[in-house]
Amino acid sequence: MTELLRLDEVGKSFRGRKVVDGISFTLRQGRAVGLLGPNGAGKSTLLKIAVGLIAADSGKVQLFGGTPSWRSFERVAFLPDRGHFTRGMSVSEALQLAGRLYPGFNPGTAREILEDARISRGAYVNELSKGQEARFHLALCLARRPAVLVLDEPFAGLDILSREAMVEAVIGAIAGGVQSVLMSTHDVDDVEGLFDEVILLRDGGLSLWDEAETLRARYGSLRQMYKEVMRG
């Protein structure tokens, strides 16, 4: 399987505090990898380093076999944990703009998700509910049909129906076997079945990385594993 992303001993400090501490892992094509860990474990920073939004202090990041640059964003869609694409426009305006900003943007994919979320195209983005805006943002990312989809805490603070719909949309995207997903979350419950591989972060360091099914067999469930590893 093609290796799309490789991190080697990546480290990053902010104002003297080590946020990411010597992390190595790889993301292969068609795989869904979950980055689990409590808030403040360095997940968000690590994802931003992986896609090239933040430079690491030490270690090496390879994305599509090279150093991440603005060009990688033609094949990587990054969904930040919070933040708005832009709130000053209507949904259809935003789709139109996204179609011009992102190469290969397929509005049909986005439309499907929007219909499912009952988002009308005339609605203004700042009028959407939190769940709707999250699904809209996911739609913007999925419609780019990126080789790598990087989602930073996509479910934080959302209702159960939105969370389930988003999991379903992500599953639909990776079902083709072409797209890979790297996703961080602190809530294991929604994603028990979603991942091929799971990485557990603790205080900026990597404390575990294995196949999800192996971990499930060993610990009982991802939830159980999470609790045990975090406690121990």
């Binding site: 068609g30 795989r31 599953i171 079902a175 079945g193």
Partner: peptide, 15 residues
Amino acid sequence: SVRELAQLLKVNPNT
């Protein structure tokens, strides 16, 4: 299909 079942069960398509 693999995709349908994966989405219904909320399980990774590879599984």
